[in-house]
Design a protein around this nucleic acid. Structure first.
Lengths: 343, 343
DNA sequence: TGGGTCAATGCAAACGTTTGCACAGGCGAT
DNA sequence: ATCGCCTGTGCAAACGTTTGCATTGACCCA
């Protein structure tokens, strides 16, 4: 490491480190001539302030930590992309951790980011996270925390924290309403893991759409499945084995819908002729299936930007007494052939 | 922030900060009794060493920086996943940056990571990066750098750096050989942007397979297209508009193959009956198309692990005089219906 | 000529660690 | 009794910044 330090510059110029520091900053009380001399030499020697030293001095880093269940999920990768962009604009760097859908690891990663003294942390709960002690502990020690997408299913008093979420219920409502409008009579829902905000929200939207249309929500058509392709497969099998199988299926997300799709193909059933199928998330894959899948676009990049924005505004300060804010990102129904009645 | 420091512990125990520091570490010369007292209190107060201060003292952080063109690409997301896992095991954290396929931004991000004093940096070149001055500068100032996947197309003397790459040429050779074996006579290649290692490697494998079989490589069948779906579309259109269109197409990666796929579907051509199609990367989407796509699995998670491993071994020290090492990750041909002759 | 003001700069402490060296006290060997 | 050694601990410097306060001249006005 041939790092140039303030002292090096100071030595060469016959100045003190403090003067050099002030000359490079916006500080008043430094003559224009020294300011110029310092800047010239700094550029010439390629001086880069040591962020580690700065962080120690300022008691805060310029690092934003992010914890997601799995980077490889298209949705989370897109969110991270949005976060990274917003952070970059604001001069922050982004540190990524995966919880691997594991509550213990989530807590570990949270602690690790706190040990790194991240300025703030963005977190989306793992599938397994049922208790929020680690979040409360983090908040208690002054960590700036913002949750996104998967947040506690029930508003936990005493857990006052900013959140950026999709309007899951509205998105699910739109899908279900669309299926009703297309004339499907037996609409099933492959729900996500219970107790998770997005599962509950989407389930709620599904039920509300049926209720508002005076439809009976048949309990055998509401199946707690899961987020994965395998979950979608087993869920779909269960639905098809019913005495009266559904004529339309709304899956909690695209991977589950893909699982369902494969089962339908395997059984020789035609989409949408025999069974209509819709997902949620608008993963790249959903538009490429044959037929392409109706789904809901969640604007994941915007979720990331918005979540980062909430965090950055807290970091600016002045919001200490403002309780948890909630930003809702609007989703969009994407209608494709998988739910369009031929006639 | 209610951070507990060494001094706090020392104060409460009537010890000095140095003793406390040594008691918590593995240092000899501390009595078992104080060691126990210190550990107990540390646990009780929830002491977490300040990594920023440690980093300043040790002149090195426990941060590994990663620069990728785009996080959202399934391939890079998977690589990062591997890196994160390896780093986590070794006690390092991962900082992610995107170059957005932009050479200027790549250099900026590299400088930013150096300013953060990352212990080491993993980098995959942006599509636009044609000069390596920023890499050389980083190396000159002592940064530990490892490249992966997209590396300089030609071995640049004076750029001695570790690399983890896919055996692109072998993978492309396997695809082309498979197409030949299936009896396709007019095999085209939609190549990636020229001057990029993976493009060149795959092109080379394609040509070698033809050559070894005494086949003529018709120049109109070798098209420099690009990495994106749009590139695949326009490339495929160009091929189909030839007087004698190919009966098999090998695209440089799955997104390009998907673009080609859409054009074929749009023109009512059947895969593989009219034109066989193969990609590279084994993106999730490729197995779900109808027909599913033959492709090459790159084991991206392994690339990430391996790249991180190369970096971590440098960080351990003792390799200062060893020149750039190259790890080649073996790819696997994944044969699916899109290239299987019906008969 | 003395006192004041002001601009430009330096000194030193602080951020929370780690670590080389010094030091105190106990103990055994001579 | 003296010496040296060993064990356990503390002091202080260092890492590279930032910043409150002190210092130095220069200049102006009475």
């Amino acid at each position: 490491m041939s790092d140039v330090t303030l002292k090096d510059l100071a030595g060469r110029l016959g100045l003190s480190a403090s003067t050099v520091s002030r000359a490079l900053g916006e500080h008043p009380g430094i003559s224009e001539s020294t300011r110029a001399r310092v800047r010239t030499l700094a550029k010439q020697l390629g001086y880069r302030p040591n962020l580690v030293a700065q962080s120690l001095q300022n008691q805060r880093t310029t690092i934003i930590g992010v914890i997601v269940p799995e980077i490889r999920h298209d949705y989370f990768a897109s969110v991270i992309s949005g976060v990274e962009e917003a952070a970059y604009q604001a001069g922050y760097a982004v540190m990524i951790c995966q919880s691997q859908e594991n509550a213990v690891r989530e807590a570990e990663q949270l602690r690790a980011l706190i040990a790194q003294r991240a300025a703030g942390i963005l977190l989306s709960l793992s599938r397994e996270t049922a208790a929020y002690g680690h979040l409360r502990e983090a908040l208690r020690t002054g960590t700036v925390l913002t949750l996104f997408d998967r947040v506690p299913a029930e508003l936990d008093p005493g857990l006052s924290v900013d959140m950026a979420v999709t309007d899951d219920a509205d998105g699910a409502y739109a899908v279900t309403a669309h299926l009703c409008a297309q004339g499907y009579a037996r609409i099933a829902h492959l729900a996500g893991p219970p107790g998770i905000s997005v599962s509950e929200g989407r389930k709620e939207g599904y039920l509300r759409a049926l209720r508002e249309r005076g439809r009976l929500a048949r309990p055998e058509y509401l199946l707690d499945a899961g987020f994965t392709e395998a979950d979608g497969e087993s869920g779909m099998r269960a639905l098809l084995d019913l005495p009266e199988p559904p004529d339309a299926v709304f899956a909690v997300n695209d991977p589950a819908a893909v699982g369902a799709f494969c089962v339908l193909r395997e059984r020789g059933l035609r989409i949408p002729h025999d069974v209509a199928l819709a997902g949620f998330s608008n993963n790249p894959v959903s538009g490429l299936l044959a037929p392409p899948l109706t789904t809901v676009d969640q604007n994941p990049v915007e979720v990331g930007c918005k979540a980062a924005g909430l965090l950055l505004s807290r970091l600016k300060g002045g919001l200490e007494n403002i309780p948890g804010r909630v930003a809702v990102i609007r989703s969009e129904l994407v209608i494709r052939a998988s739910t369009l009645r031929a006639g």
